[in-house]
């Protein structure tokens, strides 16, 4: 039952606000075309968007890996950015280390990780300060097909 049905890697360029959100938009489109439950798609898309914007705001580059299983969707966001000093603190709504110029653009409001947690069924964050961060989240699919 754990057969991987589909996977795809989306490359993300840090600081590229122009194309920010494209990877999560592509993920959403792929899931829509597969006929996956719209509620699952919405949660995956929103969580993916937050993960994507974290890579864009804080790092030079990174990637999102989408994996679709019959009963579950997994997204793995990997970057080689500065890492998160205190993961527990970063999970707090409103806590942010974003510089003012990023906040002026409407990002870095400290809702990213909390929003991923809110939309995912499971969330795992591995971060090594100075080396990078890996954010893995999973969303269960209630009905396997349309």
């Amino acid at each position: 039952m754990n057969d991987l049905l589909y996977s795809h890697t989306y490359q993300i360029q840090g600081r590229d606000f122009e194309h920010g959100g494209e990877a999560s938009s592509d993920i959403k489109e792929a899931l829509k075309r597969m006929g996956i439950n719209p509620q699952v798609i919405k949660r995956t898309a929103i969580a993916s968007y937050e993960a994507e914007m974290n890579i864009i705001v804080y790092t030079e580059k990174g990637e999102l890996l989408l994996e679709v299983y019959p009963k579950m969707i997994r997204v793995t966001a990997t970057d080689r950015g500065p890492g998160i000093e205190d993961v527990e603190l970063a999970m707090k709504e409103g806590y942010s280390t974003a510089p003012p110029e990023i906040r002026e653009m409407g990002f870095g409001s400290g809702m990213g990780l909390p929003n991923i947690k809110k939309n995912a069924d499971r969330l795992l964050i591995e971060s090594h300060p100075g080396k990078g961060t890996k954010v893995i989240f999973e969303i269960d699919i209630p009905n396997a097909s349309v």
């Binding site: 049905l5 589909y6 795809h8 792929a30 829509k32 075309r33 597969m34 006929g35 996956i36 679709v68 019959p70 396997a144 097909s145 349309v146």
Partner: peptide, 19 residues
């Protein structure tokens, strides 16, 4: 037409080919 297939597995297969 919106869905690549009624069946998720078949749709995933088609999506892989498209990629």
């Amino acid at each position: 037409q919106y869905f690549l297939s009624e069946n998720m597995e078949a749709a995933a297969k088609l999506l892989k080919m498209i990629d």
